[in-house]
Design a protein around this nucleic acid. Structure first.
Length: 263
DNA sequence: ATGTCATTGCATCAATGA
Protein backbone atom coordinates (compact mmCIF):
# COMPACT_ATOMS: atom_id res chain seq x y z
CA UNK A 1 0.00 0.00 0.00
CA UNK A 2 1.35 3.39 -1.02
CA UNK A 3 0.48 6.54 0.90
CA UNK A 4 1.65 10.06 0.04
CA UNK A 5 1.38 13.72 0.94
CA UNK A 6 1.81 16.72 -1.33
CA UNK A 7 1.37 20.45 -0.93
CA UNK A 8 0.15 21.16 -4.48
CA UNK A 9 -0.18 24.96 -4.22
CA UNK A 10 -3.49 25.06 -6.13
CA UNK A 11 -5.23 21.85 -7.17
CA UNK A 12 -6.73 23.65 -10.16
CA UNK A 13 -3.30 24.37 -11.62
CA UNK A 14 -1.81 21.01 -10.65
CA UNK A 15 -4.71 18.59 -11.29
CA UNK A 16 -3.07 16.81 -14.24
CA UNK A 17 0.19 16.46 -12.30
CA UNK A 18 -1.71 14.96 -9.36
CA UNK A 19 -3.33 12.33 -11.60
CA UNK A 20 0.04 11.62 -13.20
CA UNK A 21 1.65 11.20 -9.79
CA UNK A 22 -1.13 8.95 -8.47
CA UNK A 23 -1.07 6.57 -11.43
CA UNK A 24 2.67 6.41 -12.09
CA UNK A 25 3.43 5.67 -8.46
CA UNK A 26 0.39 3.48 -7.82
CA UNK A 27 -0.67 5.66 -4.89
CA UNK A 28 -3.57 4.35 -2.81
CA UNK A 29 -4.05 7.34 -0.53
CA UNK A 30 -2.85 10.90 -1.19
CA UNK A 31 -3.12 13.82 1.22
CA UNK A 32 -3.17 17.25 -0.43
CA UNK A 33 -2.54 20.67 1.07
CA UNK A 34 -3.11 24.16 -0.27
CA UNK A 35 -5.80 22.98 -2.64
CA UNK A 36 -7.09 26.59 -2.71
CA UNK A 37 -10.46 25.43 -3.95
CA UNK A 38 -13.93 25.72 -2.45
CA UNK A 39 -15.81 22.47 -1.84
CA UNK A 40 -18.39 23.25 -4.55
CA UNK A 41 -15.61 23.29 -7.14
CA UNK A 42 -13.67 20.25 -5.93
CA UNK A 43 -13.05 17.86 -8.88
CA UNK A 44 -14.31 14.73 -7.10
CA UNK A 45 -15.97 13.35 -10.24
CA UNK A 46 -12.73 13.68 -12.17
CA UNK A 47 -10.90 11.75 -9.44
CA UNK A 48 -13.63 9.09 -9.37
CA UNK A 49 -13.01 8.42 -13.08
CA UNK A 50 -9.57 7.18 -12.03
CA UNK A 51 -10.99 5.07 -9.20
CA UNK A 52 -10.46 7.45 -6.31
CA UNK A 53 -12.78 8.78 -3.63
CA UNK A 54 -12.25 12.38 -2.49
CA UNK A 55 -12.62 13.83 0.99
CA UNK A 56 -12.09 17.56 0.98
CA UNK A 57 -12.23 20.60 3.22
CA UNK A 58 -11.57 23.80 1.31
CA UNK A 59 -12.00 27.54 1.27
CA UNK A 60 -11.48 30.42 -1.12
CA UNK A 61 -7.95 31.55 -2.04
CA UNK A 62 -6.03 30.04 0.89
CA UNK A 63 -5.35 26.72 2.59
CA UNK A 64 -7.64 23.80 1.82
CA UNK A 65 -6.89 20.10 2.36
CA UNK A 66 -8.09 16.87 0.79
CA UNK A 67 -7.57 13.12 0.88
CA UNK A 68 -7.76 11.17 -2.37
CA UNK A 69 -8.26 7.48 -1.64
CA UNK A 70 -8.83 4.17 -3.41
CA UNK A 71 -10.42 3.00 -0.16
CA UNK A 72 -13.81 4.29 0.85
CA UNK A 73 -13.72 6.09 4.19
CA UNK A 74 -15.77 4.62 7.00
CA UNK A 75 -15.38 7.89 8.91
CA UNK A 76 -14.46 11.48 7.97
CA UNK A 77 -13.45 14.26 10.38
CA UNK A 78 -13.18 17.89 9.34
CA UNK A 79 -10.73 20.14 11.19
CA UNK A 80 -9.21 19.66 14.63
CA UNK A 81 -11.75 18.30 17.12
CA UNK A 82 -12.70 20.81 19.84
CA UNK A 83 -10.93 23.71 18.11
CA UNK A 84 -12.82 26.30 16.12
CA UNK A 85 -10.60 27.39 13.25
CA UNK A 86 -11.94 29.26 10.26
CA UNK A 87 -8.88 28.20 8.27
CA UNK A 88 -9.36 24.82 6.61
CA UNK A 89 -6.19 22.91 7.48
CA UNK A 90 -7.05 19.40 8.61
CA UNK A 91 -9.12 16.53 7.24
CA UNK A 92 -9.01 12.96 8.52
CA UNK A 93 -10.42 9.65 7.35
CA UNK A 94 -10.57 6.10 8.64
CA UNK A 95 -10.34 3.25 6.15
CA UNK A 96 -10.60 -0.47 6.82
CA UNK A 97 -7.78 -2.58 5.38
CA UNK A 98 -7.31 -6.30 6.09
CA UNK A 99 -9.84 -5.88 8.90
CA UNK A 100 -7.75 -3.18 10.57
CA UNK A 101 -8.83 0.43 10.90
CA UNK A 102 -6.24 2.79 9.44
CA UNK A 103 -6.52 6.43 10.49
CA UNK A 104 -5.15 9.05 8.08
CA UNK A 105 -4.80 12.65 9.27
CA UNK A 106 -3.94 15.23 6.61
CA UNK A 107 -2.47 18.45 8.03
CA UNK A 108 -1.47 21.83 6.66
CA UNK A 109 0.22 23.70 9.51
CA UNK A 110 0.30 27.50 9.46
CA UNK A 111 3.42 29.10 8.02
CA UNK A 112 3.69 31.75 10.72
CA UNK A 113 5.33 34.37 8.51
CA UNK A 114 7.87 35.66 11.09
CA UNK A 115 8.60 35.16 14.78
CA UNK A 116 7.27 38.65 15.58
CA UNK A 117 4.02 38.13 13.67
CA UNK A 118 0.54 37.51 15.08
CA UNK A 119 0.53 34.67 12.58
CA UNK A 120 3.33 33.06 14.59
CA UNK A 121 1.15 33.16 17.72
CA UNK A 122 -1.59 31.51 15.70
CA UNK A 123 0.89 28.88 14.47
CA UNK A 124 1.91 27.99 18.02
CA UNK A 125 -1.68 27.92 19.30
CA UNK A 126 -2.78 25.88 16.33
CA UNK A 127 0.03 23.39 16.88
CA UNK A 128 -0.89 23.02 20.52
CA UNK A 129 -4.48 22.18 19.55
CA UNK A 130 -3.22 19.76 16.92
CA UNK A 131 -1.10 18.04 19.57
CA UNK A 132 -4.09 17.61 21.90
CA UNK A 133 -6.11 16.24 18.99
CA UNK A 134 -3.42 13.73 17.99
CA UNK A 135 -2.96 12.67 21.61
CA UNK A 136 -6.63 11.78 21.68
CA UNK A 137 -6.55 10.12 18.25
CA UNK A 138 -3.63 7.92 19.31
CA UNK A 139 -5.69 6.55 22.17
CA UNK A 140 -8.40 5.56 19.67
CA UNK A 141 -6.36 4.28 16.73
CA UNK A 142 -3.31 2.02 16.85
CA UNK A 143 -2.73 2.40 13.12
CA UNK A 144 -2.41 6.11 12.64
CA UNK A 145 -0.54 8.36 10.21
CA UNK A 146 -0.31 12.16 10.51
CA UNK A 147 1.10 13.56 7.31
CA UNK A 148 1.34 16.84 5.53
CA UNK A 149 3.06 20.20 5.34
CA UNK A 150 4.19 21.01 8.89
CA UNK A 151 6.03 24.21 7.99
CA UNK A 152 8.73 23.14 10.48
CA UNK A 153 12.24 21.87 9.66
CA UNK A 154 12.92 19.63 12.69
CA UNK A 155 16.72 19.99 12.80
CA UNK A 156 19.69 21.76 11.22
CA UNK A 157 20.10 18.73 8.93
CA UNK A 158 16.78 19.69 7.40
CA UNK A 159 17.90 23.06 6.01
CA UNK A 160 20.37 23.81 3.22
CA UNK A 161 22.26 26.41 5.26
CA UNK A 162 22.00 26.40 9.04
CA UNK A 163 23.54 29.85 9.35
CA UNK A 164 20.90 31.42 7.14
CA UNK A 165 18.15 29.33 8.73
CA UNK A 166 18.73 30.18 12.37
CA UNK A 167 16.19 31.71 14.76
CA UNK A 168 13.79 32.33 11.91
CA UNK A 169 10.34 31.10 11.04
CA UNK A 170 10.21 27.35 10.18
CA UNK A 171 13.32 26.57 12.28
CA UNK A 172 12.92 28.42 15.59
CA UNK A 173 13.46 26.71 18.95
CA UNK A 174 9.79 27.02 19.85
CA UNK A 175 8.64 25.44 16.60
CA UNK A 176 11.15 22.60 16.90
CA UNK A 177 10.13 22.03 20.51
CA UNK A 178 6.48 21.79 19.45
CA UNK A 179 7.35 19.33 16.72
CA UNK A 180 9.43 17.17 19.11
CA UNK A 181 6.57 17.28 21.60
CA UNK A 182 4.15 15.98 18.96
CA UNK A 183 6.55 13.15 18.11
CA UNK A 184 6.89 12.29 21.81
CA UNK A 185 3.19 11.37 21.97
CA UNK A 186 4.20 8.11 20.32
CA UNK A 187 4.90 8.91 16.69
CA UNK A 188 7.81 8.12 14.39
CA UNK A 189 9.16 10.38 11.66
CA UNK A 190 9.33 7.74 8.92
CA UNK A 191 12.03 9.74 7.13
CA UNK A 192 14.37 8.55 9.88
CA UNK A 193 13.59 4.86 9.49
CA UNK A 194 15.70 4.50 6.36
CA UNK A 195 18.99 5.83 5.06
CA UNK A 196 18.51 9.22 3.40
CA UNK A 197 21.17 11.14 1.51
CA UNK A 198 22.34 14.37 3.18
CA UNK A 199 20.49 17.49 2.10
CA UNK A 200 17.20 15.71 1.44
CA UNK A 201 14.50 18.35 1.21
CA UNK A 202 10.80 18.60 0.33
CA UNK A 203 10.37 22.32 -0.41
CA UNK A 204 12.36 24.79 -2.46
CA UNK A 205 11.47 28.47 -2.87
CA UNK A 206 10.38 29.44 -6.36
CA UNK A 207 12.89 32.29 -6.22
CA UNK A 208 16.65 32.47 -6.59
CA UNK A 209 17.04 29.23 -8.54
CA UNK A 210 16.59 27.48 -5.20
CA UNK A 211 15.73 24.11 -6.69
CA UNK A 212 18.67 23.87 -9.10
CA UNK A 213 20.97 24.82 -6.21
CA UNK A 214 19.13 22.41 -3.88
CA UNK A 215 18.51 25.28 -1.49
CA UNK A 216 15.61 23.58 0.19
CA UNK A 217 14.07 22.64 3.52
CA UNK A 218 12.49 19.43 4.82
CA UNK A 219 9.12 20.62 6.10
CA UNK A 220 6.73 17.93 4.79
CA UNK A 221 6.58 14.93 7.08
CA UNK A 222 4.96 11.54 7.48
CA UNK A 223 4.57 10.69 11.17
CA UNK A 224 3.16 7.34 12.18
CA UNK A 225 2.26 5.28 15.22
CA UNK A 226 4.51 2.35 16.23
CA UNK A 227 2.26 -0.24 14.58
CA UNK A 228 2.56 1.57 11.25
CA UNK A 229 6.29 2.22 11.70
CA UNK A 230 6.71 -1.55 12.02
CA UNK A 231 5.19 -2.28 8.60
CA UNK A 232 6.72 0.64 6.70
CA UNK A 233 9.13 -0.69 4.07
CA UNK A 234 10.14 2.45 2.22
CA UNK A 235 10.10 6.24 2.31
CA UNK A 236 10.59 8.44 -0.72
CA UNK A 237 10.73 12.11 -1.60
CA UNK A 238 9.36 12.23 -5.15
CA UNK A 239 11.69 14.90 -6.38
CA UNK A 240 10.87 14.30 -10.05
CA UNK A 241 7.57 16.16 -9.60
CA UNK A 242 9.52 19.28 -8.58
CA UNK A 243 11.43 19.11 -11.89
CA UNK A 244 8.30 19.37 -14.00
CA UNK A 245 7.17 22.41 -15.91
CA UNK A 246 5.02 24.64 -13.69
CA UNK A 247 5.67 22.60 -10.53
CA UNK A 248 4.42 23.05 -7.01
CA UNK A 249 7.16 24.44 -4.77
CA UNK A 250 6.83 21.22 -2.71
CA UNK A 251 7.70 17.67 -3.76
CA UNK A 252 5.39 14.81 -2.80
CA UNK A 253 6.56 12.48 -0.03
CA UNK A 254 5.45 8.85 0.03
CA UNK A 255 5.72 5.62 1.98
CA UNK A 256 5.01 1.97 1.26
CA UNK A 257 3.36 -0.22 3.87
CA UNK A 258 3.55 -3.99 3.98
CA UNK A 259 -0.10 -4.70 4.62
CA UNK A 260 0.19 -8.47 5.05
CA UNK A 261 2.34 -7.72 8.10
CA UNK A 262 -0.25 -5.48 9.74
CA UNK A 263 -1.19 -6.56 13.28
C1' DA B 1 17.67 41.66 -5.59
C1' DT B 2 11.87 41.70 -2.10
C1' DG B 3 14.79 37.78 -7.91
C1' DT B 4 8.45 33.39 -8.20
C1' DC B 5 3.95 31.86 -8.31
C1' DA B 6 -1.12 31.72 -7.46
C1' DT B 7 -5.25 34.17 -6.21
C1' DT B 8 -8.44 37.98 -6.03
C1' DG B 9 -10.69 42.20 -7.22
C1' DC B 10 -12.34 44.88 -10.81
C1' DA B 11 -8.07 44.32 -14.20
C1' DT B 12 -5.49 44.80 -17.70
C1' DC B 13 -1.90 45.50 -12.63
C1' DA B 14 -1.49 45.81 -7.38
C1' DA B 15 -1.95 43.57 -3.08
C1' DT B 16 -1.44 39.43 -0.44
C1' DG B 17 0.42 35.04 1.19
C1' DA B 18 3.73 31.59 0.90
Amino acid sequence: MNIATWNVNSLKIRFDQVIDFLLKNNIDILCLQETKIIDDNFPHEEFSKFGYQSYFYGQKTYNGVAIISRYKAIEVTYGIKNYIDEQKRVVSITVNVNNFDLRIICVYCPNGQSLESDKFKYKMEWFSHLTTFIHNELSNYNHLIVLGDYNIAPSDDDVYDKDIWQNTILVSKDERKSFANLISLGLNDLFNKFYQPPKSFTWWDYRNYSFVKNNGLRIDHILASNDINAICESFNINIEMRKKERPSDHAPVSIRLKLDKIS
